[in-house]
């Protein structure tokens, strides 16, 4: 699915990411763990084609998008990727249906197909009947379900999730992870950032970031200290 080699990123003198090598296979479910400020969000922003300002090489489905136009990147994001952000990132003035519909507006989906697709994902994440609710009328778990529905409505090949359970209690976290597991079993590749060991258990593989460096094995993380 994707491969990065020797990727780095700095803000001025400050190196947020250094020498990152990572490969993710089709259908894989990868967890990225690491302390706050270690560079997890920075890394997945690069993987999600949201941030083009990095060094090194990144191939998504064997293609480099380093010199691609901004318009084309938007299309790739809309068609192939689905994001679940830290803190849900729902539009508070839009209802559940309208929030989930957003990716379809830009993929030029026909109006009648839109309704079908949105209803189907609402069903899939278990929010049937909540179409007209505002995010403020929903629990944290329900809001995260809306965010997941929005991420999958365009049937992306890769879902990138930043702390999808960060704001949720254990029971709700489990429900959300069950949705992810099902999506993964259906063939979607998932890259998920988390703080939580227990949540990381759902993934097939876990990698670790500390001070901008990536470790493939937990044993190696504190080796240099």
């Amino acid at each position: 699915m994707l491969k990065i080699s020797n990727v780095g990123k700095s803000y001025g003198q400050f190196k947020v990411l250094q020498d990152i090598d990572l490969e993710v296979a089709d259908g894989e479910f990868l967890a990225i763990m690491g302390p706050s400020g270690s560079g997890k969000s920075t890394l997945i922003n690069i993987l999600g084609l949201l941030d083009q300002d990095y060094t090194g090489e990144y191939l998504l489905n064997d293609k480099s998008y380093k010199d691609t136009s901004d318009n084309f990147l938007s299309r790739i994001r809309g068609d192939q990727l689905g994001f679940v952000f830290q803190n849900f990132k729902l539009l508070t003035t839009y209802n559940v249906y309208e929030n989930i519909e957003i990716p379809l507006v830009y993929s030029k989906t026909e109006q009648h197909n839109k309704l079908e697709r949105v209803e189907a994902v609402i069903e899939q994440v278990g929010l049937a009947g909540k179409e007209k609710s505002r995010p403020s009328e929903l629990s944290g778990g329900q809001q995260q379900r809306v965010a997941i529905a929005r991420a999958i409505v365009n049937r992306p090949k890769l879902i990138i999730a930043d702390e999808p359970t960060g704001a949720l209690d254990t029971k709700t976290s489990k429900e959300i992870m069950d949705i992810f597991t099902k999506l993964n079993q259906a063939g979607t590749t998932i890259i998920m950032v988390t703080h939580d060991e227990e949540v990381a258990q759902y993934a097939m593989r876990t990698v670790y970031i500390r001070d901008g460096k990536l470790y493939h094995d937990a044993k190696d993380v504190f080796k240099n200290d």
Partner: peptide, 16 residues
């Protein structure tokens, strides 16, 4: 700004 960011992440071009 948040809305713009979300729309951009889900496929909106800067022209959109």
């Amino acid at each position: 700004r948040k809305e713009i960011g979300i729309r951009r992440a889900f496929g909106a071009t800067s022209n959109d």
